[in-house]
Amino acid sequence: MSAFTTPQSSIRRQLPVVRRRRYNRGLLGAVAFIAAESMFFSGLFLAYFFLRTDTTLTVRSDQPLHPSIALPLFNTLILTVSVAAMAWAERSIARDDQRNLIVGTTVAAALGLIFMLLQSVEFSRFVTEGFTPNSSAFGSTFFALLIFHVLRVFAGVTFMLIVLVRAFMGQFSRHRRAAVQACAAYWYFIFAVWLLVLAVLYRS
């Protein structure tokens, strides 16, 4: 053994340091869950494109292959502002600003509710035009994407309400904010899925 070997360095050799607990476990779990969610939507998109490209299927003429995009675009704007508000809320708690966490999450959740409301208007518009999940295979996959997305919006808003309750109880701080981060990550995911749904259903 070299005479220059100090006790510290031999200890360091004995205990190779693993990077531990850099991420919060709950947050990692949420990310893994989002990966699974993205595969669920991949399945639905797979079904949609499979039926779109299947030439043996006859598409009924009254089906709006390219339906009016005005309302969905407005809805996109609402979801964009909501995502921005959530991002702002997440930033705020990183700076220990509990008040802005509450303000941001409230705005994001309220806009999420408005999104759901406007989606139901959109659904009823399709149904009055005679285009329903039961009208054809194409209608089924079309509505599946819309309905499963809006169910995720509902889940996201519920998640935000839980975050809000906990924020009012003062449970979050700069050092304890994994739930806020997980909620925000899920909300960004829902936004990304919406952009795909919009592009595919309305303009592909």
Partner: peptide
Amino acid sequence: LATPVLTAALIMLISDRNFNTQF
């Protein structure tokens, strides 16, 4: 990564059987 795709298919089949969708 694999299970959610089956889940989607199963939900589609259940809805075909019970809610008259046409997947």
